[in-house]
Write a protein that binds this DNA or RNA. Structure first.
Lengths: 153, 153
DNA sequence: AAGTGTGTAACAGAATAGGTTACAAATATA
DNA sequence: TATATTTGTAACCTATTCTGTTACACACTT
């Protein structure tokens, strides 16, 4: 699940840098370091979530279907989860409803986890793809400039 | 992982209501709806995290090893993760370091996910076991009072 | 019509977790 | 001291999930 999220973000960042040109799953797979089918599967999820569009045939491939500012890490996370699945879902074991604790623990935890869920969602929603691209550029630039030799020694 | 967290919290809530009396894994397992060995495995993690203590022999079992206010949902989460494992760890696939995006995406995401991680941790740290117990009591009471018939109809 | 690229099914292998059995070690109690 | 109780842990099976791969139908460009 974690790698799905990371790879999906990788894919989107790659597409974002392609400036509207379709990119084939084979090319993206090279960058990610995986098999093109894996990329196409993830692209399928991203497509169903409305984040990317794909074109068949020669010269086809995937491209973003929204403005960079309209795609956030929260969108990516949701695209990676089943419809209505929930990272914070209280995965009910089989609590014994004959026991006080067992009968209400799931609902109680659901409520108690609400704020944590909301906090995380807000933080993820605050990071648009533009910010991801900016971070990537920053790091590439700091490679170029020959840091770390900036310590005055 | 999700069930591990939920079941661990269930166990702690159960122990909290036992008022310092050791509870056997068999009794807890009944409440959780699972096998005693599963409970003992989780109790092992909780023990290594310093949240519970166990007593061998007749009349033995598990009991809390901290004040109710000194155990938060964040403590539980940490106890369920490997030492130094991280729910937000950027599970590096094998990004192609010959590609601009591949070379820096992992570190970039690590930075970008930092705030989401901190936000969630803060929210979880704000929920002590006392609060879990309080929620459970609230729900048990609302069972007793015969709600929902309070709509004035 | 031919070539290119997606969409998806199918299958093998790894990783993770739950359920179960089995048993050694520790402890309370008769 | 002997016995019953309870934990701690290893071992194994099963289910689930994900990755990697092959295969192939379908769509689109030229």
């Amino acid at each position: 699940m974690n790698t799905r999220f990371v790879v999906a973000t990788h894919i989107l960042a790659y597409l974002a840098r392609a400036n509207g040109q379709p990119v084939s799953s084979e090319v993206v797979a090279k960058s990610v370091g995986t098999h093109p089918v894996v990329v196409r599967r993830l692209l399928g999820d991203l497509r169903r979530a409305g984040l990317v569009r794909t074109q068949l045939g020669t010269g086809g491939g995937a491209l973003l279907d929204r403005a960079l500012d309209d795609i956030t890490l929260l969108d990516v996370l949701h695209a990676m989860l089943e419809p209505e699945a929930d990272l914070f879902a209280v995965n009910n074991a089989n609590p014994n409803t004959g026991c006080d604790v067992g009968r209400v623990i799931s609902d109680s935890l659901d409520d108690l986890l609400g704020p944590a869920k909301k906090a995380m969602q807000a933080a993820l929603a605050a990071v648009p793809l533009t910010e991801v691209i900016r971070q990537i550029r920053l790091r590439l630039n700091s490679e170029d400039c020959g840091c770390p030799a900036d310590d005055g020694s």
